[in-house]
Structure formats: C-alpha cells, structure tokens
Design a protein around this nucleic acid. Structure first.
Length: 244
DNA sequence: TCTAATCTCATCAGATCCAATCTGATGAGCACATTAGA
C-alpha cells in the first residue's frame, strides 16, 4: 500500500473511531434519536443501482468518468434549465447512454457546485469591498493626522508671531506704536503682554504699548480675520496659509 | 392523505497526480427534508 493508501486507511480508522464515539455519545445505543444528521455508514457504498455508465454490464464497482461529449450535453442542458424533470431526465439518459439515476446525480452535483461557486464569487466581491473600505479608512486617518500636525505648527507660528509683534511694540518708545497716540496697547489674555502699562487702545494688536521698536503705519495692516493689526510678515503668513 | 420522486446537504471515495483537487455517487433528512399527483 502506498502513502496515499495508508493515509486513507488512517483517515478511515479515525473516522470509524469518531463515528463510534459519536454514536455512543449521542445515546443512539440506548435507543435515543440522534440530534444531528446521521453520518453515512462506512462501507455502505452501493455498487449496484445505477452504478456508473461503463459498468452496466460488468460488476466493476470502480467509478467511471463521463465522456467529454456526455458532459458537454449535460452542461448544455443544465444551462437551459437547472432543474430536471422526469421526462427530460429520461430523454437525456437515453441520448447519452446513461442511467437516468446518473443524470439525476450529475444534476444534483452540478447544482451544488454551481451554488458553491456563486458563494465563492460573492465572498470574493465582499472581501474586495471590505479591503477597499479599510484602505480608505487608513487614508482618512492619515489625512486627519497630517491636518492635526499642520494645525499644531500653525498655532505655534501664531504664538511666535504674536510674541514677536508684542516685543516689537513693547520695546518701542513707550507708546504710539500705531500712531494712535496711545502709550501702548494691551492684549487681553496674552501672556506676553505682561509689561502693558498704558491704557488699552483698541483696536490694537499685539502686546503692550510703550517701548520697543516703533512700527510705522506702513508696517501694520488691520486684518479682520485676525481681529487686529498685523505687520507684513504676519499678513504674509496669513495669506500663505490661505487664512485671508 | 399517502407515497414516490426529488431536493439539499454532507460525505465518501476513485481518478488524476504525488498533495490536493475534481467529480461521481451515496445516505439522511428526527417536533421524521419537500413536492406533486393520485
């Protein structure tokens, strides 16, 4: 016996063992009904009863494959109609020189294989859709991350520019940074405006008054989106990021 | 309502190739499959 034969034998032995165990466990030995579909009995393979196109006259239990022509005819018939009425079955069987039982069995198997193929295709489609959705989700998550990073950078830049502008105005000569006559402007809530000394001067931008480099009117532009005045560098930055 | 034919499902096993797949065939169906015709 070759390796394949040995394997088959082992499988059969195992299956017999499992069968016996299941039988015992299911209580069939005590006369109870099994709950599950009963397994086919081993060795119950029927040799007679239709058994194979080429063995009608012989007693050879070996399975014979249908010829290409027979399969082709059966396929054609299957494509026309997947169910097999008795008349069609008998007609096909006589045309193909097969037993009607064989034709019926062929159709049963063909239906089963057709169904499993359809299921396989459906599964494949669903899997592709699922993979695409996962990929799209990853892209979206990456995009969110990138946007968050940009936001952090932008916020840092805003803080830096605010403090720069604040120091410019704060380090001026104590006052009229925008030519508005004030001695300085305060920025509410700005931690960098701790040296604000003068009266608040709205609409003012950036930092306290008094001291620091004096910026002329030409250097400052009122930016509504910003809520105040900004110098050219800030305006540039705003336009760069499309904020104005 | 009864019954024979037929269905689906799970499985076996031979054939083709060398492990895995294809395919013809069988058996069960369990609060006992469903369906169609007598």
């Amino acid at each position: 016996m070759d390796r394949y034969g040995e394997k088959q034998q082992q499988q059969q032995m195992f299956a017999s063992y499992v069968d016996a165990s299941l039988l015992a466990a299911s209580g069939e030995v005590q006369g109870e009904r099994p709950r599950a579909r009963r397994r086919r009995r081993r060795g119950a393979r029927c040799v007679g009863g239709g058994g194979g196109g080429g063995e009608v006259d012989g007693g050879d239990p070996k399975k014979r494959r249908l010829s290409d022509e027979q399969v082709e005819m059966l396929e054609l018939s299957f494509r026309e109609e997947r169910k097999l009425e008795t008349g069609r079955k008998v007609h096909l069987a006589s045309e193909l020189g097969l037993d009607p039982k064989q034709v019926a069995v062929w159709f049963q198997n063909r239906r089963a294989r057709h169904k499993s193929k359809l299921l396989e295709e459906e599964f494949s489609k669903l899997k592709h859709a699922h993979d695409a959705a996962i990929l799209h989700k990853c892209h979206l998550e990456n995009e969110v991350l990138r946007l968050k990073e940009r936001l952090v950078v932008a916020e840092e830049e805003v803080r830096r520019l605010r403090s720069t502008a604040g120091s410019h105005t704060a380090s001026g000569e104590g006052g009229d940074i925008m030519g508005l006559g004030g001695s300085g402007a305060c920025v509410a809530g700005s931690p960098s405006s701790s040296f604000s000394t003068g009266t608040c001067q709205p609409p003012s931008f950036g930092g306290g008054g008094g001291g620091g480099d004096h910026l002329g009117d030409d250097d400052l532009v009122y930016v509504p989106e910003y809520g105040g005045y900004a110098d050219n560098s800030v305006v540039e930055w705003f336009s760069l990021y499309g904020l104005i």
